[in-house]
């Protein structure tokens, strides 16, 4: 077991986490006694081979799933103690997601896709519009606001995905293979953007990736292998 923490006052604190999935009579242990701390303002890359539990860990941090054992705390909230309803509200307030396949709603324009998380707030239409415009400007897509995802390149769609992830100014941005479906050039643009969000806006980012080129942009990289975290990849 490894404990690659970076000091006290962590934004994300994972302690003794285990995750077991049940498939029929079989128990599949995906994460075992895992500990991790991520301080505010860090850009953490999470690497590991397929099936190592990276996405499972990201789901636990993002409140999409609950640990079988242990504790996951983000910004002081213990997510394993929250009900489904509370967890949904918590995600809306604290978490921004960026997915590998962008996961935009195809029937909505870029502007409407970015607006989605704001529909859950009490903001007025004018306020929502202003926030959306700011988010789209940050990702350099103001001119594509009225376009539908199908008319955009992969890189542009991912930038819309990032705008959607940051529009509510979440505590934590979770990126699951954000460049996994992009060519090198578009991937670099996305990584530049994430780096800028981290450095210029102090956004805390946890990024799951297979790509060493992508992880090199992070301020720290941890490796997950067979459910355990290490500071360096296994040989």
């Amino acid at each position: 077991m490894s404990d690659p923490t970076t000091g006290n006052g962590a934004l994300v604190r994972i302690e003794g986490v285990e995750k077991v999935f049940h498939r029929g009579a079989e128990d599949i242990h995906v994460l075992a006694n895992l500990n991790l701390q991520v301080p505010a303002g860090e850009f953490l890359a999470l690497m590991g081979p397929s099936g190592s539990g990276k996405s499972t860990l990201l789901n636990l941090i993002g409140g999409l799933d609950r640990p079988t054992k242990g504790s996951v705390s983000v910004a002081g909230d213990h997510i394993e103690t929250l009900s489904d309803h509370q967890l949904a509200a918590w995600r809306a307030r604290h978490i921004g997601f960026v997915f590998q396949l962008y996961n935009l709603i195809p029937v909505l324009t870029a502007e409407r896709n970015v607006e989605l998380p704001l529909l859950l707030t009490h903001l007025t239409k004018a306020e929502r519009k202003k926030h959306v415009a700011t988010a789209l400007a940050m990702v350099g897509l103001t001119h594509r606001a009225q376009h539908y995802p199908r008319t955009m390149s992969g890189g542009e769609q991912q930038r819309v995905g990032i705008a959607r992830g940051i529009v509510t100014d979440p505590t934590l941005l979770l990126c699951d293979e954000p460049t996994g479906d992009l060519d090198r050039k578009a991937g670099d643009e996305i990584l530049n953007l994430l780096q800028a969000l981290n450095r210029e806006h102090g956004k805390t980012i946890i990024m799951v990736t297979h790509d060493p080129h992508a992880s090199a942009r992070a301020s720290r990289t941890v490796y997950l292998n067979k459910g355990e975290l290490t500071d360096a990849p296994l040989a």
Partner: peptide, 15 residues
Amino acid sequence: GEIGVLKAIGFTNGQ
């Protein structure tokens, strides 16, 4: 999948 996205960004089951 899209319903999953909505839930991920904070839509409740009731919504």
